[in-house]
Amino acid sequence: MMNKEKYIWEDDRFRKDPYRVPEGYFAGFPDRMMERLNQAVTVKALEKRRVMRPWMAWVSGIAAVLVIGWFGIRTYYWKPLQEVRFQENITLFVDFYGEELHEGRLAGFFEDNKIDIKKQATTEVNELIQIEPDLAEEYIYESVGF
């Protein structure tokens, strides 16, 4: 028995998957997927339309100017030590993982640095966007629940 099991990967029956899928799963998957994508696009379009009502556009514009101004001043004059450390850390972090970097690790990194990405999609995230744009974009989408 042991000898038989010892060479288990040489036995062809193990290469035949014991896994199955529900009947018609692959035939129906493209339709289900397209429906889900269309729903996501419709929801996004509706949200965009709602968000872009004229008075909201004004409020968002003013808020954006204030936020950008505040962060500009903060970055230029203060440059807190924490931010400098963050820049160094994230560069090391991205270099260290390279191809192995994924959202799970990224989430852990943000957690370790006490960054709530939902509230603080600011300078820290911008740093990441410059270093690893695709991953940052994916992670931001994920975090805001798109």
């Binding site: 896994y19 199955r20 899928v21 529900p22 799963y25 998957f29 289900r32 997927m33 889900r36 994508l37 996501a40 695709d134 974009e137 994916e138 989408y141």
Partner: peptide, 21 residues
Amino acid sequence: ILVHEDTDDVLQNTFIKIWKG
């Protein structure tokens, strides 16, 4: 992942990322 239901969820998320990317 081994289990079909979980695989189905992950596959859908994968294709959403592909669509966006």
